[in-house]
């Protein structure tokens, strides 16, 4: 791999790692297979791109992506908790609805951000940051989000959230409204996913209606890779692991591309990684896969 590819892959990996952390919050912490992710990733990209082309400050646009992503998560959460729709179906409903909403937000199937101001153009225009600006901004973002998530998961509220995914009956009998926990967890998760989408769009300089397709499987593959390679002995380590998983996944993909596969084969490769993890007994033992098959 050329040094340029190595650098670009690292930048992308860090941006996608934020999405992976979101997937981790639902799939692992809440034990909730949330498929809204495919829609909320695009929603984040669409929101940021539309606001930026409409002349808004890109930092504001990025923050807005987080907020609308959270709202999508709240929607999924309400479908599940208030209307008792299964987790899987709630997520699919949100994902489907978001497809139309994303088209409305963008007004067309894709938006170019060429020659517009983005958070990255702001950052790379700082003297000495020309070459590594994207990397540094991504790294700082991931570090801050990772640390905040870790601290959050060690708070009283965070403990209640984790217990909701682990033993709902128990934490409810200790006085926690688990519906609120699930809605909050889904909101945070989808907020992070949309935030990640807004970073990716600003880095690749376009938002596209189909950019979120398969995101949930990419997220899951990354979570599994991180957990297997780095471990899950403590919550801090696990957060670190899934963030690394997001980056490592990108390197695997870059490697596969170097081998001569084309970009359209990547979803197959990703699915194979997850299938391999699901059927391999050694890995199965090491990590608890979604669906409570412990």
């Amino acid at each position: 791999m050329s040094s340029l590819v190595v650098l670009g892959t690292m930048e992308q990996g860090l941006m996608y790692a934020i999405m992976v952390l979101g997937v981790y919050l639902t799939f692992r912490i809440l034990d909730y297979a949330d498929l809204s992710v495919d829609g909320s990733f695009t929603l984040g990209a669409a929101t940021a791109a539309s606001l930026i082309t409409a002349g808004y400050n890109p930092w504001f646009a990025t923050l807005a992506a987080f907020v609308v992503g959270s709202l999508a998560g709240v929607f999924t959460g309400i479908l599940h908790t208030k209307f008792k729709i299964t987790p899987l179906l709630s997520g699919i409903l949100t994902m489907t609805a978001l497809y139309s909403i994303n088209l409305r937000v963008m007004g067309k199937a894709n938006i170019s951000l060429l020659r517009t101001r983005t958070i990255f153009s702001d950052f790379t225009s700082i003297p000495l940051f020309e070459k590594y600006g994207v990397l540094i901004l991504s790294l700082i973002t991931v570090a801050i989000i990772g640390i905040l998530t870790y601290i959050f998961l060690e708070t009283e509220f965070g403990l209640a959230l984790r217990a909701t995914g682990d033993n709902e009956l128990m934490i409810r009998s200790l006085g926690v409204n688990t519906d609120i926990m699930k809605i909050t967890g889904l909101a945070l998760s989808n907020g992070l996913v949309a935030f990640s989408g807004s970073y990716v769009a600003q880095n690749q300089l376009f938002a596209d209606i189909s950019m979120g397709i398969g995101m949930i499987i990419i997220g899951l593959a990354s979570v599994i890779i991180g957990e297997v390679l780095i471990g899950t002995t403590s919550i801090g380590r696990t957060v670190f692991a899934v963030l690394c998983g997001g980056v490592i996944y990108r390197y695997i993909i870059a490697f596969v591309l170097q081998l001569g596969l084309v970009a359209t084969d990547l979803k197959l490769v990703t699915a194979l990684i997850v299938i391999f993890a699901l059927v391999s007994p050694g890995i199965k033992k090491k990590i608890a896969l979604p669906g409570k098959n412990e």
Partner: peptide, 15 residues
């Protein structure tokens, strides 16, 4: 600690 906070509001402070 979760049991010790039974019936209390769960806050955003270190548990």
């Amino acid at each position: 600690i979760m049991a010790f906070r039974r019936g209390e509001k769960r806050r955003l402070r270190l548990a």
